[in-house]
């Protein structure tokens, strides 16, 4: 039974696309046939982070409007044979998405794939609602700061009010909290909210903590999802997240402050 996972946050720039790319890659690496869909019509980024932007011919909007088949639009990942990317259109706006069309595409993908990862745009308008509407599970991405937590709270309210599962009265969407850009040292000095603070405010189970790391930016710029980087703490933390999504018990790592030596204090990390 295929699962639809939405990666959402309300706020922009918190790491939704990075997370979508790494979660989809991680699931595919574990042997599941996976597709990741970019719902950010007009501001597509997922293809850049997946490193396939030059191979985009047809996109999600073309498929919805019957201008291309799903087979034509799906892009096979260059590293993993069981990972597909369905890119967004750069030239349309978010109103090009509509429920029946999205549902038709998702139903077709459910037949062929184990996991469908939906990369939501920021905000709470059409695009974001379309991305979460058909979800079975949701990864709510939050930075350790007040405005990001507030927007996540807002999106959790929408998940429980406007999603298909809520409206049909089915079991609610399974919610996972993912804290990204977490810097234990800045939490210790009180500059950032702690994991406990965020969990108390949002009241949903914690699925992962991705530490702040230069390797995320490097990976994005080179079009390789950071989960492929098995040396960086962020890559390892994303691997842990994927294992937890698959129901395994994995302790949270990289959340205690690191004492900087004199050398590091002088020259940075």
């Amino acid at each position: 039974m295929a699962k639809v996972i939405v990666v959402t946050s309300g706020k922009g720039g918190v790491g939704k696309t990075t997370t979508s790319a790494s979660v989809a890659t991680g699931l595919a690496k574990r042997g599941y046939k996976t597709v990741v869909i970019d719902f950010d019509v007009g501001l597509r980024n997922l293809d850049l982070i997946m490193g396939c932007e030059r191979r985009v011919v047809y996109d999600f909007v073309n498929v919805i409007h019957g201008e291309a088949t799903l087979k034509q639009a799906l892009i096979r990942d260059k590293r993993l044979a069981n990972l597909d990317i369905l890119p967004a259109s750069q030239t349309r706006d978010k109103d090009a998405l509509f429920k029946d069309g999205v549902e038709k595409v998702l139903n077709e993908l459910r037949k062929t794939h184990d996991f469908i990862v939906c990369d939501s745009p920021a905000g709470i308008e059409t695009g974001a609602v379309m991305a979460l509407y058909f979800a079975d599970e949701a990864i709510v991405v939050t930075n350790p700061e007040v405005s990001s937590v507030r927007d996540s709270d807002r999106i959790l309210g929408i998940l429980s009010a406007k999603s298909k599962r809520a409206l049909d009265g089915d079991d609610p969407i399974k919610e996972h909290l993912l804290i990204t850009r977490y810097d234990p040292n800045r939490v210790q000095t009180g500059e950032m909210l702690s994991i406990d603070d965020i969990m108390e405010l949002l009241g949903i189970p914690l699925a992962g903590v991705i530490p702040e790391s230069q390797s995320v930016l490097t990976a994005s710029n080179s079009g390789i999802p950071v989960i492929h980087d098995e040396v960086s703490v962020s890559g390892l933390a994303y691997q842990d997240l994927v294992e937890r999504l698959l129901g395994e018990e994995v302790p949270i790592r990289f959340i205690t402050p690191v004492k900087k030596g004199l050398f590091k204090r002088l020259f940075g990390t």
């Binding site: 709470i124 927007d151 709270d153 309210g157 429980s160 009010a161 809520a166 049909d168 009241g203």
Partner: peptide
Amino acid sequence: RENERSQAVDDDHAGSTQVIHQPIRSGQ
């Protein structure tokens, strides 16, 4: 369900006590 979960939850059984089990989130 819609009544219960919509953004403006409005009890249609006027005059009776309403009990809510889920958190009320920002914007609700």
